[in-house]
Amino acid sequence: MKDERLKKLLLKKEFLSVVMIVLFSAVFGAVNPAFFTVVNLYDLLKVCSYPAIFACGVMIVLINGGVDFSFLWVGMFSAYSASKLFSILQAQHGFTAPLILIYAVCVLIGAILGSFNATFVSGFKVPVFITTLSSANIFMGIMFQFIGSEYIFPEQMPARMIAFSNTVFLKTASGVGLHVSVAVAAAVMVLVHFIMKYTLMGRSVYALGGDIAATERIGFNLNRVRLFVYMLAGGIGGLAGGIGVSNIQVANPYDFQGREMTIIAAVVIGGARITGGSGSVAGVALGVLLTNILSQNLVLIGVPPEYNKFVFGLLIIFAAAVQAVQEKFERERR
């Protein structure tokens, strides 16, 4: 019985990332005692915040059965457009947009872009990764052509976004606080967890990732489920972009570029199956933590920064291998 429970734990998809977080933290902590300080923890959480929001969107699409490559451009498109709109309103009409409005616009633009993805996937039956690779380029092109490509500097940025980026809470005695974007990320994760686990729409996403024909047969409208998936993921991507731009305090169109793989890797390491049908917010949180602990601290154990990508590659292969072994083990248990 105890043996059985141990096996179940070992087979838990989130188990791998917990073990690796503990392991790497021990190593980094041993090399540099400053690793285990509140300041470092707060710093780590801040770095994780908007990637974690992006990762939630990626997870939803992955559960539905596809890898999204467009999420960073959805995020940047939404954030840059909103920043530009409200910076112009601020400079020319003296309108200081409230934060909630700015982020609502980000979410809205993201959801609209997501609906394009849904249309392509449903309408033309194109594989998700091809659709989203193309749409990433389309979004990028439209943005550069019609919205802009120049930096928006801190002094031009909407004032509330800059103020927001300077907000901290849970201050320690020495005056260091936890960045507010961490709270936003936590709220998004709780919301996504609720939607995916406790609503019929959320469960339909898992169902579709498990078996498309069966989903249709029990009466779900596949196009509606896909629209839900991509609009939700798009909205989340838009918000992540907004938070990211505010954290950096500059709207730089190239800022997120090239980070797709680390975020997708975080989701996969957190246990979401690459072939769809499984994945959890807890796993995503763990995966994002793990990847950021590594990228922040590898230099501590003597890995030069230029090897970061190499180590990440190894890590993804390792995570995929562990998943494969777990699945094989599961099959043999039957």
Partner: peptide, 12 residues
């Protein structure tokens, strides 16, 4: 209708 493949969801 119970189809030959049963239309059950393997992941649930």
């Amino acid at each position: 209708v119970i189809y030959q493949d049963f239309s059950v969801f393997r992941n649930l």
